[in-house]
């Protein structure tokens, strides 16, 4: 493996590790359920993304053939992170007092508490 590539992979690994740690630390440190939701959805996703870049680069250097599984895992994590966050936020809203949320500004209420029909 060339020196430049090794530096690149090491940088990706270090940055990924730091972001992953920050995401998990935020989960412990932040107060309030909604605040805690912010930390893992962003920091951890990018941490894993950096790790996958490093993995793809080492695989490329070792076998001279691109492995596309890393691309799939990354795409999958980035597509699903917003959905997970949305569902967790909806679950939190069940226990939020109604007065805390701002009005929609439209005739209908937020879909979570709007009566069907």
């Amino acid at each position: 493996m060339s020196l430049a590539l090794e530096i690149l992979v090491s940088a990706a690994l270090v940055v990924g590790g730091i972001f992953g740690l920050i995401g998990s630390f935020g989960l412990l440190k932040l107060r309030g359920a909604m605040q805690r939701l912010h930390a893992p959805t962003k920091a951890t996703t990018v941490g894993v993304g950096c790790t996958l870049i490093a993995s793809a680069l080492t695989g490329l250097a070792a076998t001279q053939a691109a492995s596309w599984h890393e691309v799939l895992v990354t795409a999958f994590l980035f597509l699903t992170a917003p959905l997970t966050a949305l569902y967790l936020a909806k679950t939190h809203m069940l226990t939020t007092p109604p007065g805390e949320l701002p009005p929609t500004g439209t005739p209908r209420d937020w879909s979570n508490r709007d009566a069907p029909g």
């Binding site: 909604m34 939701l37 912010h38 959805t41 962003k42 996703t45 980035f78 597509l79 992170a81 917003p82 959905l83 966050a85 949305l86 936020a89 909806k90 939190h92 809203m93 949320l101 701002p102 929609t104 500004g105 439209t106 005739p107 209908r108 209420d109 937020w110 879909s111 979570n112 709007d114």
Partner: peptide
């Protein structure tokens, strides 16, 4: 999805007539 992934904002819900987003 974009709002959830970008700076310190998180989509929590959409109004039932899809005319407003609730963001934290």
């Amino acid at each position: 999805g974009t709002i959830t992934l970008t700076p310190g904002t998180l989509t929590a819900d959409v109004s039932a007539d899809r005319k407003a987003l609730l963001i934290h």
